[in-house]
Design a protein around this nucleic acid. Structure first.
Lengths: 388, 388
DNA sequence: CTGTTAGCGCATTCAG
DNA sequence: CTGAATGCGCTAACAG
């Protein structure tokens, strides 16, 4: 009863709305003494009702006498009360958040997926908790663990997914834990971990896009297409390489190892690798462009940007001497000169689909593998090869 | 006592580590009956100790007998237990998260800031809660409110900040509420709301960068520089326009309204506006390039990309006929041909600084206004004007 | 060293 | 219609 003597805050002049200048903080000893957010109890005291009544007014699902309701609402406004989400969550009545785990937000594809995830989550009334890993599998596990602690209702994992079988197995374990806790792991834009029955996968037609891209090149008459990107590992690049291989094979052409240039997903690496290749090749060969290939399939648009610079530096014109294609249909594809032919990937939709699947009621959604279509976007960086 | 008859889970075979294939879920009635995450109580029962002991083992700040400790750790592993972050938060011993509010993750500058925020937050051991607004002030307020409910230890607001005085006032109120709850609002890359004493601001030298950029143009001999971007409002563009004005004035040149082209921050709008302008001007004037200006200051790199396309379409060469500069030093600046001269903005560092200030112990950090430096990055899109 | 107790803020029984 | 009591999962005082 020690606090019972505290005067009600309703004696404060009726300033009402917490408009410009900030809401009115209670001047009484209670409010000024304790730092930290206003609690339900404080509101109850101010409105001279019980906590239960305040709760009911706020929930709105229960009959409350109009005068009481007014008193409560007024106190809520004056004390600038907002409910504590943690307490709600603990009580079991908070909509769990969607967790988003990714390597780096600065990557355009990642950012697009993330935006999709965030939008869809918001439409379902869920917040979105984000964690970055820098591509480090260890940090990925740590972040995933932390998301589990937060009680995430669903975890969306964005990324390349090429981190070795051990990590894949670890992921399978995490997927199982999440599933056991009533949550769900959704892998977005990366292959399913081997043997993970509990993980849901949302992917796009990586291989099909590459197939279309290379087929288009072949249809224009190209016979030597350089694949500029990683040729090992099981990540995103693997699907694109598979499409490249299939297109060649279907057209009765051999997959020549000399045309598998290797490299990374980024701009700098692609640039350097192609530049070196051009320097070497031109000394050896005697084909039209002096390179041993008439077209370059860069594994990403970023890589294509690097490739373009290297080609230009070597005095080669795109698409007159060499055709160039990228993958991803990023913003930069239209900034390049010539504008880059590429494959459109519905990144934002990928993120949305991931959340929809993650939040789906039916347990059948667990372990599902959704694949979104991709399509070729022909622009101005492709042309028939120059006449021999 | 109804649950007291449940057999201890230690009778499960010693599979141990939750490796590939997922952790071992307890097979007893307790674990399989209740869905949802494992609780401390379940672990305590399994290890045949009290909840407090489990808590102590996990916290590690308290002496526990080695055998007991082993039993507990084993149960934790077998039940795949992780602590409930909400309960921790409620108890008061969880590090609050950093909330991040922004319009759209797909914007490169925003993504960079966000990455910085996330990195710095992680280094402080805080999670990062993200919410997008789509640039809508109403959604911004809603998101901010929700962040407050989540008990965010700090709220970082990224954005253009040009939404009118009413919204600014509203923001001031929110800053006050946050401050009263022991949290803090940090505005990142946007001007301080008028009269908000409770908001902290982290900005960059927007005006100085523009000043340097335009001064460089003037030093090269340009006298008519077109400002391509918004000329009204108090957002990001305002500071850049101010730098433009000051540079002109300092060099004894008038600010000619005809050279204030207006437009938006994006690529498309800049392109269309410049294209229209070029069509009109060339019919009227008779200066070297036939445009009435010899250089274009595009308010962002994106706008510069649009401007470049428009200039090229009009048969104008950059930088031979017209010089072009952007702002932001985005990735695309080096993809353009010629590579774009621009102003570097330390976006990632901006995000980091925002979190540092947000989490600073000293209350003095509230209401502070930090300004990070910018610098000119001369590349190949600027040259002296063509001889008359 | 370990167990028991209390309470964080809230929503929800159950009594009035 | 409203108030008092209970417990979500956890940790920090207190006892042993």
């Amino acid at each position: 009863m020690s606090n019972a003597s505290v005067r009600s805050v309703t004696s404060v002049p009726p300033v009402g709305r917490p408009g410009p200048g900030g809401p009115v903080r209670a001047a009484g000893p209670t409010a000024s003494a304790t730092a930290g957010p206003t609690t339900l109890r404080q509101v109850a005291r101010a409105a001279e009702v019980s906590m239960a009544t305040v709760s009911r007014v706020l929930a709105g699902n229960y009959p409350v006498a109009p005068p009481t309701r007014q008193r409560v609402l007024r106190a809520v406004r004056e004390l600038d009360y907002v409910a504590n989400a943690h307490a709600r969550a603990l009580r079991g009545h908070a909509t769990p958040t969607v967790a988003l785990v990714l390597a780096d937000l600065r990557d355009e594809a990642t950012a697009r997926i993330a935006q999709g995830v965030e939008e869809e989550a918001a439409e379902h009334g869920r917040g979105c908790l984000i964690g970055t890993t820098g591509g480090d599998p260890r940090r990925e596990r740590a972040v995933l663990r932390s998301m589990r602690q937060q009680g995430a209702g669903a975890v969306v994992l964005i990324g390349d997914g090429d981190q070795g079988p051990a990590h894949q197995a670890e992921l399978a374990g995490i997927a199982g834990s999440l599933a056991a806790a009533g949550s769900r792991l959704v892998l977005c834009g990366r292959p399913a971990p081997t043997g993970a029955t509990s993980a849901t996968v949302v992917d796009y037609d990586n291989e099909g896009g590459a197939y279309a891209l290379v087929s288009d090149l072949l249809a224009r008459g190209h016979r030597q297409v350089l694949f500029l990107g990683p040729t090992t590992g099981g990540g995103t690049a693997a699907g694109r390489l598979a499409g490249y291989r299939r297109a060649l094979t279907d057209h009765g052409l051999p997959v020549r190892p000399a045309l598998l240039a290797g490299g990374g997903l980024g701009r700098a690496e692609a640039h350097d690798r192609l530049a070196r290749l051009l320097a070497t090749r031109r000394a050896d060969r005697a084909d039209p462009a002096g390179t041993g290939f008439s077209a370059v399939f860069a594994v990403t648009d970023q890589a294509a940007a690097g490739a373009l610079t290297a080609l230009r530096a070597a005095g080669l014109s795109v698409p007159d001497d060499i055709s160039l294609v990228g993958y991803g249909d990023s913003d930069r594809a239209t900034d390049l000169l010539p504008q880059l032919s590429t494959v459109h990937v519905p990144y934002t939709e990928l993120g949305r689909a991931a959340v929809r699947l993650a939040l789906a009621r039916e347990p059948a959604a667990t372990g599902r593998h959704a694949v979104l279509p991709t399509h070729l976007v022909p622009r101005h960086s492709t042309a028939p090869p120059p006449p021999a």
